[in-house]
């Protein structure tokens, strides 16, 4: 080690220059890797997602409502699958975000310091729990409850197909719980980052603590909270394993008690048996491409919000 040290400082200039250049080139390549990865993912998603569009036709895919990939006359309409992903994500956000933000308010503004210190690690821990574990609990605990509710609601119905508790509602609840840690963590950080002067000014003007929180602090933390919501949307729309079994397994319109398929769960549940090279398999990649487009849109929105936040600061 010692001699190497000397060599490096005292060694001849030419060698050093070579080492320097090589180091810089290697670091640059490492950095370019992220760009390379995103480009090749985009390229491959488009390459493997487009054949089915030509085979089936874009209108049939986007507006067809019948999904029967293995029938004698196969149909590949994914309208309900797309709608399920949108509706499911929207409902999960509607359910999870208010609870998440209010919890963040509790941790940052209301709770005694010691309690907040105890709750925070638990929230962080939750963010790390594998998604299959959420799925396991969803199907084991939520399923039976939902089934009972379903039997109660549709007691007199003769047309309803019973799902045994694996339906859109169960999936939405699982998704809402899964986005909680993301929303809580990011909202709390942004609430804590609000300048203390804003809070002090509001209180000094005679506003109550609650008025201060909802009229001054939350608006000031807006960009952070928006980030939290967008990240939550991304997590909910991209989640696959947790809701594969909980959401049921047939393609139906996204109604609360229907067994439904999301973009993600359609891929997971059929990729295993779709024949290589078949239109069916190509179609699953097209579903992947649709999901990818959604995610890219979300990413663009997110980077806009982040940039705006920087300007305001």
């Amino acid at each position: 080690m010692k001699s190497e040290t000397n060599a490096s400082i005292m060694g001849n200039r030419k060698n050093k220059a070579v080492v320097e250049t090589v180091a810089q080139i290697i670091f640059t390549i490492c950095a370019l890797f992220a760009i390379l990865a995103v480009i090749s993912i985009t390229l491959y998603m488009i390459l493997s997602g487009t054949p089915a569009i030509f085979q089936v036709g874009p209108m049939e895919i986007l507006f067809g409502t019948v999904w029967a990939p293995t029938a004698a006359e196969p149909r590949f309409g994914i309208l309900y699958v797309i709608l399920t992903s949108i509706v499911g994500t929207f409902l999960a956000i509607l359910l999870g975000v208010p609870i998440g933000i209010l919890t963040a308010v509790f941790l940052a503004e209301v709770a005694p310091k010691k309690l907040a210190m105890a709750v925070k690690p638990a929230v962080e821990l939750l963010a790390g729990i594998p998604s299959v574990v959420y799925g396991l609990l969803g199907i084991y605990l939520l399923g039976p409850v939902m089934y009972r509710l379903e039997k109660f609601v549709f007691a007199d119905s003769t047309t309803h197909q019973f799902t045994g508790g694996a339906n859109l509602m169960s999936a939405v609840i699982v998704l809402a719980i899964m986005i909680l840690p993301t929303v809580i963590n990011i909202s709390e950080t942004s609430i804590r980052a609000v300048q203390p002067g804003i809070k002090a000014a509001s209180l000094a003007l005679g506003a109550s603590h609650i008025q201060t929180i909802f009229r001054s602090i939350l608006p000031a933390a807006r960009s952070g909270i928006m980030t939290a919501v967008v990240l939550g949307v991304g997590r909910a729309i991209g989640e696959a394993m947790a809701i594969t079994l909980v959401s049921g397994s047939s393609v139906n319109p996204p109604l609360p008690f229907n067994s439904v398929r999301f973009l993600t769960t359609a891929i997971v549940s059929e990729m295993g048996y779709a024949e290589v090279g078949s239109t069916h398999r190509n179609m699953l990649f097209t579903i992947g491409l649709v999901l990818f487009v959604f995610i890219m849109l979300i990413n663009v929105v997110l980077s806009r919000i982040l940039k705006k936040g920087e300007v305001h600061r």
Binding site: A37, M45, F292, I295
Partner: peptide, 16 residues
């Protein structure tokens, strides 16, 4: 792109 990579859902990585 680094930001994008962290936002892509795992199922897409699986397909890729």
């Amino acid at each position: 792109t680094t930001e994008t990579l962290s936002g892509i859902p795992s199922i897409i990585f699986g397909l890729f």
